[in-house]
Simulated assay, not measured.
Amino acid sequence: MTAIDLNADLGESYGAWTLGDDDAMLAVVSSANVACGFHAGDPTTLLRTCRSAARAAVRIGAQVGYHDLAGFGRRFLDVSPADLTADVIYQMGALDALAQVAGSAIAYVKPHGALYNAIVHHREQARAVVDAVTSYDATLPVLGLPGSVFLEEAERAGLRTVAEAFADRAYTPQGTLVSRSEPGAVLSDPHAVAQRVLTMVTDGTVLAVDGSRIDVRADSICLHGDSPGAVAMANAVSELLRANHIDVTAFV
């Protein structure tokens, strides 16, 4: 049977502010990108999310990002490589401790938001993230955009790389993500998103914003937990995949 990993960004609530329905998403996805407190997530929220993921047998990933709570990690920060490496190590260590208390551990690393997009092309910051992962635990896989300098640097350093595609984000003809500041950058129709994911998995392509069809290589597909209708989209994707004999399982 064909299989694909579905991942979602979780643990992004903060104090009295609730974002998304983590428990509902954990019933669908196979990997959870859990915030590490720098862009979102307070310690109590993160521990609760790790415990819920462990109970659901969902793999926990450290979603590391810029130190930018006010901007939800979606603003580029011109951080020095040394500072960024330290920031990423700090975030991995904090989440790993919470995950271990919950009976699990971090199993991979995925950058968040503006950092994810920056290291598609920003080689110094890409190397800084790679240095952090290799220093902390060189057995941890990293998720990133195919063709990014981040995955290139990770492969060069001997890390396992996992190519990622996005169910609910629009693509440019160059295979990068359309900026969230642009109209239509985030998709919200569950049926359309599910059909899109099925095409990604079975055909290895996706329709770009200009109408061209581009190749996508995906070992894991992201469903954003904070998107409008995230749970409905996740359920629609999961149901359509299973109806087409495609298993949802963590990448191996």
Rank of each mutant, 00 (worst) to 15 (best):
Met1Ser: 12
Thr2Ala: 15
Leu6Cys: 00
Asp9Val: 10
Leu10Cys: 02
Gly11Lys: 05
Gly11Asn: 05
Glu12Tyr: 06
Tyr14Ser: 06
Gly15Asp: 02
Gly15Cys: 11
Ala16Met: 14
Ala16Ile: 07
Leu19Pro: 13
Gly20Pro: 10
Asp21Thr: 05
Ala24Phe: 10
Ala24Cys: 10
Leu26Ile: 04
Val29Lys: 06
Ala32Asn: 03
Asn33Arg: 07
Asn33Trp: 09
Val34Pro: 05
Gly37Gln: 08
Phe38Gly: 02
His39Pro: 04
Ala40Asp: 07
Gly41Glu: 12
Pro43Gln: 00
Thr44Pro: 08
Thr45Cys: 12
Thr45Tyr: 12
Arg48Gln: 13
Cys50Gln: 00
Ser52Pro: 01
Ala62Asp: 10
Gln63Asp: 00
Gly65Thr: 11
Phe72His: 03
Phe72Val: 03
Arg74Asp: 03
Arg75Glu: 14
Arg75Met: 13
Phe76Arg: 07
Phe76Cys: 10
Leu77Pro: 02
Leu77Asp: 06
Asp78Tyr: 08
Asp78Arg: 04
Leu84Pro: 05
Thr85Cys: 14
Asp87Trp: 14
Tyr90Thr: 13
Gly93Pro: 12
Gly93Ser: 06
Ala94His: 03
Asp96Gly: 02
Asp96Trp: 01
Ala97Gly: 12
Ala97His: 04
Leu98His: 00
Ala99Lys: 00
Val101Tyr: 01
Ser104Lys: 04
Ile106Asp: 00
Ile106Val: 15
Leu115Ile: 06
Asn117Pro: 01
Asn117Met: 06
Val120His: 13
Val120Met: 11
His121Glu: 13
Glu124His: 11
Val130Arg: 08
Val130Pro: 14
Asp131Tyr: 06
Ala132Gly: 02
Ala132Met: 09
Ser135Lys: 03
Tyr136Cys: 08
Tyr136Leu: 09
Asp137Thr: 00
Ala138Gln: 11
Ala138Pro: 15
Thr139Pro: 15
Pro141Gln: 06
Leu143Asp: 15
Leu145Ala: 10
Val149Ile: 14
Phe150Trp: 02
Leu151Trp: 11
Leu151Phe: 04
Glu153Gly: 04
Ala154Arg: 13
Glu155Leu: 08
Gly158Tyr: 08
Leu159Gln: 05
Leu159Lys: 10
Arg160Lys: 02
Thr161Arg: 14
Ala163Lys: 04
Phe166Tyr: 14
Ala167Asn: 07
Ala170Val: 00
Tyr171Ala: 01
Thr172Gly: 12
Gln174Glu: 15
Gly175Asn: 03
Glu182Cys: 14
Ala185Gln: 02
Val186Glu: 11
Val186Leu: 12
Ser188Phe: 03
Asp189Gly: 08
His191Pro: 05
His191Tyr: 12
Ala192Trp: 09
Ala192Ile: 04
Val193Gln: 04
Val193Gly: 03
Ala194Val: 12
Gln195Arg: 14
Leu198Thr: 04
Thr199Cys: 09
Thr199Asn: 10
Thr202Tyr: 07
Asp203Thr: 10
Asp203Pro: 09
Ala208Trp: 14
Ser212Val: 01
Val216Pro: 00
Arg217Phe: 06
Ala218Lys: 01
Asp219Glu: 15
Ile221Arg: 10
Cys222Gln: 09
Cys222Tyr: 05
Leu223Gln: 13
His224Ile: 03
Gly225Trp: 08
Asp226Cys: 07
Pro228Lys: 00
Pro228His: 04
Gly229Glu: 01
Asn235Ser: 09
Leu240Phe: 07
Leu240Val: 06
Leu240Ala: 09
Leu241Thr: 01
Asn244Asp: 11
Ile246Leu: 13
Asp247Gly: 05
Val248Ile: 15
Val248Asn: 07
Thr249Glu: 13
Phe251Ser: 11
Val252Met: 07
